[in-house]
């Protein structure tokens, strides 16, 4: 009753990087549809943050030196970047679940490039983040946000969001691989929240004072948030752009390397 053998035993070549990554990305995307309850908070949070922050801190734009008179213009990009960050951390969460269930062992035993195990799910994160940013953007427009830097400015906010998502995903994965349990999840959230808030998240550098100014000035997230906001505060300039791009590339490289090493160390 032996079935027909369609390929020769032992001839599997191993998955290629792109094809394997795409397969894993599909898995990540399906979970949006199949587990909407897990996606909903990620979607709702930036929307809430946009409305709540611009409503509560409505008046801060009147502080002398503040670069805009619309508080929603100030807080929408922040909410998008934070939402993206938590989207990236979400990959860390789901990887912890995969490690705990043993599913991740199955992936590790496959003869696919190790990089595919990282960038595949990362593609899915990017897609989720695009949805989240777009939803927040629509709500932002309804609450009076006005683009000042044209389409390029808008694109730069998306770039910043995807950048924060990548940084956070690398960080989340690295911690997930190293801890392998939900302790990693708490650590991811705390560190990301702290890192983003210790920047120009709430107020521009020229308005803030004291210790925060000193920290925010060297925090790369300050550059990334400046990049995200430049299309909402005035014209797009190369001056406000390059620092953000360099920061994104630099810290993504670091956190993704941290993740890659963590993946290899799982066998140690």
């Amino acid at each position: 009753m032996t079935s027909t053998v369609t390929i020769l035993a032992g001839q599997a070549t191993g998955g290629t990087l792109l094809r394997s990554a795409r397969g894993l990305a599909m898995r990540g995307l399906r979970s949006i549809r199949r587990l909407p309850s897990a996606f909903f908070p990620a979607l709702a949070m930036p929307i809430f943050q946009t409305i709540a922050f611009s409503g509560t801190f409505f008046a801060i734009t009147k502080i002398p030196g503040f670069p805009t008179h619309r508080s929603v213009n100030w807080y929408l990009p922040l909410a998008c970047c934070m939402g993206s960050g938590f989207g990236g951390i979400g990959l860390g969460f789901s990887t912890v679940r995969d490690i705990e269930s043993g599913f991740f062992d199955r992936l590790r035993m496959a003869p696919a490039p190790r990089l595919a195990l990282i960038i595949g799910p990362l593609f899915a994160v990017w897609t989720r983040v695009l949805i989240v940013i777009t939803a927040a953007l629509i709500v932002g427009f309804l609450f009076g946000a006005r683009l000042t830097g044209g389409v390029v400015g808008l694109l730069l906010m998306y770039v910043a969001g995807l950048g924060v998502a990548t940084v956070a995903a690398g960080w989340g994965l690295g911690l997930a691989y190293r801890f392998g349990d939900m302790r990693a999840a708490a650590l991811m959230q705390l560190t990301l929240l702290t890192a983003i808030f210790l920047s120009n998240a709430q107020a521009p550098l020229n308005v803030m004072s004291g210790w925060l100014h000193a920290v925010a000035r060297i925090n790369p997230f300050t550059n990334i948030l400046r990049l995200a906001r430049e299309g909402w505060l005035g014209d797009v300039t190369w001056n406000a752009t390059w620092g953000g791009l360099v920061s994104i590339v630099g810290i993504s490289a670091l956190t993704l390397a941290f993740a890659y090493r963590g993946l290899a160390k799982l066998a140690d």
């Binding site: 801060i60 998240a201 709430q202 803030m208 004072s209 004291g210 925060l212 100014h213």
Partner: peptide, 9 residues
């Protein structure tokens, strides 16, 4: 955070 960011408010 608020005290440093919004001190001038």
């Amino acid at each position: 955070l608020g005290s440093s960011s919004f001190g001038r408010a």
